[in-house]
Amino acid sequence: MKRDCLILGCVIVFGILAIQGSLLSFSSSEAFFYMNSVDYDKVFLFFIIPAHIFGIAWIDKYILYPLVIRIGNRRKSMLISCVWKWCFTFLFLCIWYSFLILLPTIKFPIRETPLFQIVENFPRYFMALLISANLATIFKHSKVPAVSSMAHFIAVLIPLIEMNGIRRALTLSGYGLHKFGFLYSWVYIKGNQVYPALLVIFALTIVYLFRISAKRDML
C-alpha cells in the first residue's frame, strides 16, 4: 500500500512536470524552437524516463513466484518479462511520438514542421529506453535488498546522474565529450557510431540479465 502511494505520488509529480514541459514546448513561436524543446535532455530525463520506468515497475508487479514456477524455467520467465517490457517500450514511444508529430502540425504550417528531425531520434530514444528497462530489471534482481527494493528509483536516477552530473562536469572541465558517451549520453551524440554503441550496451545488459536470472535466489 505504501509502495503504491509512493509510485502514485511520483506519477503525479512527473505528470505535472510533463504537462508543464509540453505546454512550454507548445508555446514555442517557431517550429525550430519547438524541435529544440522536444529534443531537450530535461524532457528525456524528467518525463520520458520516469514515465517509462513507471510502466516497467507495473510490469514487474506481475512477475510473482506463482507465475514463475508455472512457467517452469527462470530464463524463460525472464525472457517473457523482458519481451513484455520491450513491447511496452515500443508502444510507449510510439504514443509519445504521435503526440510530438501531431502537436506541431496543429500550430505550425506542415512544411515548417521538423518531422524528419523528430522521427530521426526515435531509434536513439528506443535503444536508450530498452537499456533503461534492462537496467531496472538488473537492479530488481540484485542480491542487495536495498538495491532490489529501490530498483526503479535507481533506474531513474542513473541517467540523471550521468547527464546532469558526470557528463556536465566532464564537459565543463574541458573534456569535450562530443563523440563519446557512457550509457544514456549516446542519445545526444551526433554520428553513426551511436547505434553500435547503444546496441553493444543493450546486448551486455541482456547477457548479464540472463546470467543472473539462472542463479538468482527468489527470497
Partner: peptide, 18 residues
C-alpha cells in the same frame, strides 16, 4: 531441473496482484 514438475506452493505471505 529448474523447479520440481507439477508443484503447487504457498511460501510465506500470499503474493497477488492487488
Amino acid at each position: 531441473l529448474t523447479f520440481p514438475p507439477d508443484m503447487g506452493m504457498i511460501i510465506e505471505k500470499p503474493e497477488f496482484l492487488n
